[in-house]
Amino acid sequence: MTGYLNILLRLAIWFLLTADFGIANTIIGVCVALLLPRRANPGALKDWLHAIGEIIIAIPQAFIEAIEIMVRPHRYEAMTMEHVKPQRTPGLIFLDIFVITFTPKTIVLKYHEEGLYEVHRIQRRKQS
């Protein structure tokens, strides 16, 4: 089941890159998604469902944060290091970075191979 989710993720990235839903492009995208190398240990289905749930929650959160930024300006910045959840596949790490970056107040600047995300945040008040 998680193999299908990996293929769907690759195909979604293909469509985002090409912005073409034609038959020929879809066939090429499926071929590329199938030919890209796979990892030996695919993520557990539970991890994928949790990541999809986080994406669903991030959509309204992004709208709320955008309105909050317009109504009450955020003048302070902070850099934090967040740990990657254990046993994450590259596909799940990509989805984690996507969720963090999707919301207007945060962006992932760098992924460290040691299992850390470097996250830039804007805040209303300076944290002590």
Rank of each mutant, 00 (worst) to 15 (best):
2 T>A: 12
6 N>F: 01
8 L>M: 13
8 L>A: 12
9 L>I: 06
10 R>K: 07
11 L>V: 08
12 A>F: 11
12 A>H: 08
12 A>Q: 04
16 L>T: 01
17 L>M: 06
18 T>V: 03
20 D>C: 05
22 G>M: 05
24 A>L: 11
25 N>H: 09
26 T>N: 05
26 T>Y: 10
26 T>E: 01
27 I>F: 10
28 I>N: 07
30 V>N: 00
31 C>P: 02
31 C>V: 14
34 L>F: 14
35 L>S: 13
35 L>R: 15
36 L>S: 03
38 R>A: 05
41 N>S: 09
42 P>H: 06
43 G>F: 02
44 A>M: 11
45 L>R: 10
46 K>W: 06
46 K>C: 07
47 D>A: 15
51 A>T: 03
51 A>Q: 05
53 G>F: 03
53 G>T: 04
54 E>F: 08
54 E>P: 00
56 I>A: 06
56 I>P: 01
59 I>D: 04
62 A>W: 02
62 A>E: 06
62 A>F: 05
63 F>Y: 14
64 I>G: 10
64 I>N: 11
64 I>F: 12
66 A>G: 15
66 A>F: 08
67 I>L: 14
69 I>N: 04
70 M>A: 12
73 P>F: 13
74 H>F: 09
75 R>A: 11
76 Y>E: 10
77 E>W: 12
78 A>R: 07
82 E>P: 00
85 K>H: 11
85 K>D: 08
91 G>I: 06
92 L>K: 07
92 L>G: 04
93 I>C: 07
95 L>F: 10
96 D>T: 09
97 I>T: 11
100 I>V: 14
101 T>H: 03
102 F>Y: 09
103 T>N: 07
105 K>M: 11
105 K>R: 14
106 T>C: 05
106 T>E: 00
107 I>N: 03
110 K>W: 11
112 H>W: 07
113 E>N: 08
115 G>R: 10
115 G>M: 01
116 L>C: 03
118 E>R: 13
120 H>C: 07
120 H>D: 08
120 H>R: 12
121 R>T: 08
127 Q>G: 00
128 S>C: 02
